[in-house]
Amino acid sequence: MSVRMGEEQKQYQEFLKSRQPAKHWLKNSIRAFFAGGIICLIGQGIQETFVHFYHMSEQMAGNPTVAILIFLSALFTGIGVYDVFARYAGAGSAVPVTGFANAIASAALEHKSEGYITGIGTNMFKVAGPVIVYGVVAAFFVGLVRYVFTNF
């Protein structure tokens, strides 16, 4: 922070506290719970379809299920529906794999105007990139802990 928090700044922050509209924590949490749940329910439905009609094992059915969800999310992003849904659903649409697909597809769409290499290629992971980076880093440390515990 480059501005020193002087007395005036502190007073103003205090003054603001009662004057900012409340964030709708509870409403947003409830919406997120149900919206996220519905997405997972759809995913479960797709997986069950693969298991029952295509005779896959549950584990095998996982991959095509995720692929279908990613495809649907990218499609709905492209036709401009996913962001409308996400504004309502909040974390419920961001946490499942569909949120990740939306982050990548929307960034790719946005930067198409700068070309396929410098635009889409460079910026596609702009929003979703941190998830991959810290996902890999976290996996490394979890793996390390597991290795230590199982071998020593």
Partner: peptide, 9 residues
């Protein structure tokens, strides 16, 4: 964010 990115404001 990108225009089509789903974010709650």
């Amino acid at each position: 964010f990108p225009t089509e990115y789903g974010a709650q404001k």
